[in-house]
Design a protein around this nucleic acid. Structure first.
Length: 1179
RNA sequence: GGGCUUGUAGCUCAGGUGGUUAGAGCGCUACACUGAUAAUGUAGAGGUCCCUGGUUCGAGUCCAGGCAGGCCCA
């Protein structure tokens, strides 16, 4: 037996297991790399997963995508190294450890030492590695698990240090500050995780102020002033006439309005204590604003204020709106008349300058940045939900504020403390600095627990409000209840406060980042231009600092005053610096030593140290260095962002730049990476940023950002909801191939996938089932014939039948198409194309129509050609599908080609490799593509389909032969095309002839359909009338148009001339015939039955029933039989005429009638009940 | 709140540059076909192409504004 045969159904899970074992045993993955030695490389980077949790089904998705393109490139002959990796640092691991130990960050250093804590993290982080490795293998993801990079290893950390030093030397690493949640009472920053603890957000009642910022009159702001001034004559002068003159409304006011108009911008804050730190105002560029004239409620002074139009109602009662001031008395108070002067958008306001609210003149500190500050800037966070639609910006006390200010080059209000160091106006304990004039030294909030019960007690916010009312800079002061975060430890309100951080100055290379990003092929493209591109456009410096324990330490040591510092770039350098420190007696001994060429941990004893060097905390914290001036230097206690770890993998995975320079050069940049779209601002960014800064290059040329895997209802999968899919169980049950195929074929990888196990079942049945059946069919008959395909003994292409040349033409087209899709990183379209080919073209047309060729007789050239054609299709399909379904493709390849291997190896042909994954992907032979042939086969398919439809209408079973079908043809080409596939059509629909009807027959009824596309361009608005006219065309008119090539008609009184292209002419009726149409194609069926046709029908029924009987009796395909039938005249007549046919079909040596049949079955069909006896007649 | 993305049959998805009657598979119903077939064929039922407005002779498609889901960031 040349080709293995299988019981059905095939166990796909077992195929996966078997092939996996075979791969391992024969080192196929290693060979897929080593046999490509010296070939061009395809560089792939593995985005390191974290093994502190069990892998989920979405990991199968992401890794399938990665695997597909690596395997594909291998098939193209490239060498694809895939070094695995593990991401091991970071907050999730710390949190998990804390949860398990039942401790909080507070307890670190108290209940547990940093050393023990980090040891625990180290153990935890790889806890699920075995499960990950298992899944990796079982799903068929080929990646090198034996030599992965691990981010906590000292070599890896050392590489990160070396890179940081490079950035430091380029001046791209600096210490600055960022606004973070801060608890003054606890004296510590809070992580977003701590802020998300339940109970931190509480309702509090605060004093809020709508402040007035006085606009400076200059070119920018002139439009505001102009708006006031221009309207004066109409609106603001006193109207003569009736009524007494209001007491406050005097000529003075008119003149004041005219001469010294004051325009204010209104901004609301719930934290009045930040107002003295205000340096900017933010507006929404597209938000509409208005300028309103009114009076200050506390001073009664006439003012003009700017606020968002949508919020006017909030501050100005409709009943107080006026069109003139006649009859009003003006005084202080809430009910002030008002009037809208004019309208602006935020964009009009940007750039306007205003006066500092608490200036030096009022006893507040001088401010150097005055020139650049106090401007209106755009802010994307501005809304008209509350406040005034204008946001007060204090860059030292708000994250949005800080960011917007930085982008608009607005400085923060900074003063100098007692030591001459810059500080915000609030110190770290939560009090105003002494320089703050009358408020100096006051608590921003009650952080020290002082007594607030006195009747005269005023909070700082209240004091500020009082001062502003007096200054005429408060527009509205009120208590307001809102939610505000509190420190979970001290219960005191959190401050958003500038805290020291180390930054990488990514903004310095922003343009280059953007420029190089444009050279990256993003899949989907929108992620690159949109999500990633916009992120780059709004780039801020990369905050590297993390106040944590388990991570890569920042390798910077500083003197106490920060005047001297050093950035360490290697262990070697660190050890040398420690030696200096020991010499200077800053340290007592050097804890890092080199023994036998390896770095180890040493203590101060005489014992030989053995433990591998550890660069984590707490060890590095205990290292003190000495500055050139002899001062001790202390390590900056921060760790670095874990995203730096993963972004550094192109370098650190090789321990570059400390060694392996050529290795690195060979593998940089990556040709391809893929991760979930959630990595856009994570790994995708850090890779890109580091590559641009360090190498002035992209880090990857092609990148796919895949979407999420949701449950079948579109909900996120989670263990808590119980809707998570177990990847192991899925793979065991359905096999890795169907799982992978489903994920790729069902939706584009970058769309979210609604994961439904029923979908895998369908893929299994429809695609793998059909492919398996096609193989089984081939194996069954090839084995019966003892046929073994050979590479050098094939029926020449020119001698193949239409059907064979057709499927081979389709196959070449498929190769082109699938390669194109893989090349374009579009695996979904590749999978769908393969699937359509296998089910629709190969199985359901070529094999179905070819079956008779396999059944009959000897191994003729036609039969051989049939085998060879099918064999070629199956092998090529196996190759094309191999990247997506690697196990099944291997199975199919080996079954199809193992018998050819010896000769292939001997002659070194493409089939020589033992595994499909070591082969080279076939190139399409375009000279075998015959488009005309593909077209006429489609005609055959459509005509057959129409004929089936007609049979159905006439209730004529396919087994009943019919004389002919008629096909009207309007041109010679169609006639010729259909003529060539006539035999196929006849066989498929069981008719004797296809006859053509041409125009001259005169029986065709034609109809005409307007070609709207063409007519629309030509006639535009008149199209409807023209279309209607065309649909009314008579047979004569159609004929005229066809014969003369034009037709003059009249539409709405206008003469127009129609050309043949303006319409689509087709035949859709044949009077007296049963017809069916499909677009321009029409088929008529001759339903006349002759005696002979009837007899043949009976004969075919008989064959069918006998075949069924054979099958039911469990006979093998090759068994011969003897048949005896009960006597019936009509049957005998049929057997008389078609005896040979019947005998051949059912492989009967004898077919006789007998009056009495005993012990047999009864064949039932049509009106017959035929007793039958069937015996095996084997020798 | 911002950026990106998705919305077409019960379900999963196709529908270059606008063209009038919107498709496929699955599922459902009926009938057929079958010595490879958990396959296949034919027919039927099933649609507010998320909504509103606009551009146009004509919009699932283009524009604007919404709604809903998702991701990331605040």
């Amino acid at each position: 037996m040349n080709y293995p045969e299988y019981k059905q159904p095939l166990n796909y899970g077992q195929v996966g297991t078997d092939i996996l074992a075979w791969w391992k045993q024969n080192g196929i993955f290693e060979k897929s790399v080593s046999t490509r030695e010296g070939q061009p490389t395809f560089v792939f980077y593995e985005g390191p997963p974290s093994a502190n949790g069990a892998p989920g089904i979405h990991h199968v998705m992401a890794r399938t995508v990665k695997d597909i393109f690596c395997r594909y490139q291998t098939l193209l002959g490239k060498q694809v190294n895939r070094k695995g990796g593990w991401d091991t640092h970071g907050l999730p691991i710390e949190l998990q450890v804390e949860k398990e130990l039942g401790i909080t960050k507070e307890d670190i250093g108290k209940k547990i030492s940093i050393e023990d804590y980090n040891q625990r993290c180290r153990e935890t982080v790889m806890r699920f590695k075995a499960q990950w490795d298992d899944l990796t293998e079982k799903m068929g993801y080929w990646v090198d698990l034996d030599d992965p990079y691990i981010t906590f290893e000292p070599e890896y950390i050392e590489s990160c240090w070396a890179l940081l030093k490079k950035l430091y030397d380029k001046g791209l690493l600096y210490k600055g500050y960022t606004i973070q949640p801060y608890s003054p009472a606890a004296g510590t920053g809070l992580s977003s995780h701590e802020l998300n603890q339940p109970g931190t957000y509480r309702d509090v009642k605060d004093t809020t102020i709508v402040a007035q910022f006085k606009v400076k009159r200059d070119e920018k702001s002139e439009k505001l002033f102009a708006a006031v001034k221009n309207s004066l004559p109409q609106k603001w002068h006193r109207l003569d006439g009736d009524g007494p003159i209001p007491a406050n409304f005097s000529e003075d006011i008119v003149s004041e309005l005219d001469e010294s108009t004051e325009v204010f911008i209104l901004a609301w804050t719930t934290t009045p204590w930040t107002l003295p730190a205000n340096t900017g105002l933010a507006v929404g560029k597209n938000i509409p604003y208005v300028l309103i004239s009114t009076f200050n409620p506390y001073t009664g002074k006439p003012i003009h204020v700017v606020l968002a139009e949508a919020l006017v109602d909030k501050y100005f009662a409709k009943k107080n709106e006026v069109t003139s001031w006649k009859g009003y008395a003006f005084s202080t108070g809430k009910e002030q008349p008002w009037y809208i002067q004019s309208h602006f958008t935020g964009a009009d306001l940007v750039g306007i300058r205003y006066e500092r609210l608490f200036g030096q003149d009022k006893g507040f500190p001088a401010f150097e940045g005055e020139e650049r500050a106090f401007r209106v800037i755009p802010g994307d966070f501005v809304t008209t939900e509350d406040g005034t639609g204008i946001v007060h910006i204090s860059p030292t006390f708000g994250a949005d504020d800080f960011r917007a200010a930085q982008q608009a080059d607005i400085p923060a209000l900074i003063v100098m403390d007692a030591e001459g160091k810059p500080t915000p106006i609030v110190d770290r304990t939560g009090r105003y600095v002494p320089q703050m004039g009358e408020f100096g030294g006051r608590w921003v909030k009650n952080y020290d627990g002082h007594d607030q019960s006195g009747a005269d007690y005023k909070t700082l916010d209240e004091s500020i409000a009082i001062r502003m009312k007096g200054d005429g800079t408060a527009f509205k002061v009120e208590k307001y209840e809102h939610t505000y975060p509190h420190c979970w430890r001290t219960d005191k309100p959190v401050l958003y406060y500038p805290l020291d951080s180390w930054f990488i100055k990514t903004t310095a290379v922003k343009d280059r980042l953007i420029e190089l990003n444009k050279t990256i092929n993003w899949q989907p493209a929108s992620t690159g231009t949109g999500r990633f591109g916009n992120w780059l456009e709004n780039l801020v410096d990369w905050n590297l600092s993390r106040s944590r324990y388990w991570g890569t330490p920042l390798p910077i040591w500083r003197t106490q005053d920060g005047s001297e510092e050093i950035c360490i770039g290697s262990i070697e350098q660190l050890v040398a610096e420690i030696d200096k420190a020991v010499a200077a007696e800053v340290m007592t001994y050097n804890p890092y030593q080199k023994v036998d060429g390896a770095w180890v941990m040493a203590d101060n004893s005489s014992e030989q140290p053995t433990a591998k060097i550890d660069l984590h905390r707490p060890y590095v914290d205990d290292i003190f260095l000495v500055s050139p001036s002899g001062q001790p230097m202390y390590r900056e206690t921060d760790l670095i962002d874990v995203w730096f770890d993963s972004g550094a993998m192109p370098y650190a995975q090789w321990h570059y730049p400390l060694e392996n320079g050529t290795q690195f050069q060979k593998n940089f940049p990556a040709d391809f990476i893929a991760e979930g779209v959630d990595q856009t601002r994570g790994w995708f960014f850090t890779l890109h940023a580091l590559a641009v800064m360090l190498e002035d290059s992209v880090a990857y040329k092609n990148v796919m950002a895949n979407g999420l895997v949701l449950d079948k209802n579109g909900n996120k999968m989670s263990k808590r909801l119980g809707n998570a899919i177990d990847p192991f169980q899925t793979i065991t049950q359905f096999g890795p191939d169907a799982t992978r195929w489903y994920m790729i074929a069902n939706a584009q990888p970058w769309d979210n996938l609604k994961f439904d196990l029923n979908g895998i079942t369908e893929v299994q049945r429809r695609f793998f089932g059909t492919l398996f059946n096609t193989y089984s069919f081939y194996a069954l008959y090839a084995n019966l014939d003892g046929f073994q395909a050979r590479e050098f003994d094939r029926v020449p292409h020119a001698e193949l039948t239409e059907l064979d040349r057709w499927i081979l033409s389709k196959l070449q087209s498929l190769i082109l198409e699938v390669r194109g899709h893989y090349d374009a990183y579009d695996p979904t379209k590749a999978a769908r194309a393969i699937q359509d080919f296998v089910t629709d073209q190969l199985s359901n047309w070529h094999v179905r129509l070819s079956r008779r060729r396999f059944w009959k007789g000897e191994l003729t050239q036609d039969k051989k050609a049939a085998y060879e054609t099918l064999q070629e299709c199956l092998v090529v399909v196996a190759q094309l599908m191999a990247p997506i379904a690697p196990f099944f493709a291997e199975w199919l390849y080996q079954n199809m080609t193992d018998g050819m291997r010896a000769e292939a190896i001997e002659r070194n042909t493409p089939l020589a490799p033992e595994s499909i994954h070591l082969t080279l992907l076939v190139e399409a032979e375009t000279n075998r593509i015959d488009k005309a042939l593909e077209e006429r086969m489609e005609l055959a398919q459509r005509i057959s389909s129409l004929t089936h439809s007609l049979r159905k209408k006439s209730v004529l079973k396919v087994r009943q032969p019919l004389q002919r079908i008629l096909v009207p043809v309007l041109n010679d080409t169609t006639r010729e095309q259909v003529g060539k596939v006539e035999d196929l059509i006849c066989a498929e629909v069981n008719v004797k002839h296809v006859e053509f009807l041409d125009d001259t027959s005169g029986v065709l009824v034609k109809s005409v359909k307007p070609n709207f596309k063409r007519l629309g361009q030509q006639y535009g608005p008149k199209l409807k009338a023209v279309g209607a006219r065309i649909q009314q065309m008579t047979a004569e008119e159609i004929s005229t148009l066809e014969k003369t090539g034009q037709l003059a008609v009249e539409v709405e009184g206008q003469p127009i001339t129609l050309a043949p292209d303006d319409v689509e002419i087709r035949t859709d009726d044949l009077p007296g015939w049963l017809v069916a149409t499909d677009g321009p194609l029409t088929v008529a069926l001759d339903v006349t039955l002759t005696d002979e046709l009837r007899q043949e029908g009976v004969a075919r029924e008989l064959v069918n029933r006998l075949q069924n009987l054979r099958k039911d009796s469990g006979l093998e395909v090759q068994d011969k039989i003897r048949v005896t039938l009960g006597q019936q005249p009509e049957l005998e007549a049929a057997v008389q005429s078609f005896g040979d046919y019947i005998r051949t079909e059912v492989q009967a040596l004898a077919l006789n009638f007998a009056p009495e049949i005993s012990g047999g079955s009864v064949l039932e069909f049509d009106d017959y009940n035929v007793p039958v006896q069937l015996e095996v007649a084997n020798s």
